[in-house]
Amino acid sequence: MVAPEIAFENVSHSFATPAGPMPVIDDVSFEMARGTFTAVIGPSGCGKSTLLQMLAGLLKPSKGRVRQSGREIAGVNSTIGFIPQQSLLFPWYTLSQNVALPMVFKNVPAAEREERVRRILADVGLDGFADHYPHQLSGGMQKRGSIARTLVYRPDVILMDEPFGALDAQTRMVMQDDLQGLVARQGATVVLITHDITEAVLLADEVVVLSRRPARVIARVPIALARPRNVFEPFAVPGFDDAYGQVWQRFRAEVLA
């Protein structure tokens, strides 16, 4: 049997606070097969981002293990790509320098770097902005830049922490649509943290529903909608209502309680 690309095995975590340890994650287990898109959804402040930090190797769980391709993650994990909530483009570099940076770190030759930067910027619709500094770009363009910077080095696993939360509704739909196409082309395994059920259902192959803090897995809902999905008219996607309903049924107790 092939090991899952990502596996959380009985992961628990507490943060130290002046009032004693505060549990944020309580015995969470789930796994993702290679090339699948998983959305993790939960009430705000439930510890979703903490799970990503563990995948990134920035945080060691108090209990349990996080494995990637069967091996336990220990230390910073530079085989993944991370798309943060804020775009976090380095303000002191131009867009193209930002996108090239991960390849600088990975010693990709300069000529190849340039070519790949040029291509990915065209893919995300940012050709013509290569020499702009981040503060000269709109929020949506910064987000595209941030996505390009991750896709450009073709990581096996891409982590996204509420990547579209700060965008306006229209930009957000366009970005979700673009993301579908870009990610499908790369065949990466994707983990998307969100608190938006529509986004989770439209983008993911499986939705993992977490409880309020300390986070437990309440349900894992497979989403079997045909791709590509029309993110602009979700209610016109066959089966969307049903899938949305299934997630909401599990989620409502946590939101309304």
Partner: peptide, 13 residues
């Protein structure tokens, strides 16, 4: 710290 973490994930020595 987030900039530094991001750079580490991207493979910075």
């Amino acid at each position: 710290r987030e900039y530094a973490n991001l750079a580490l994930i991207m493979g910075a020595k």
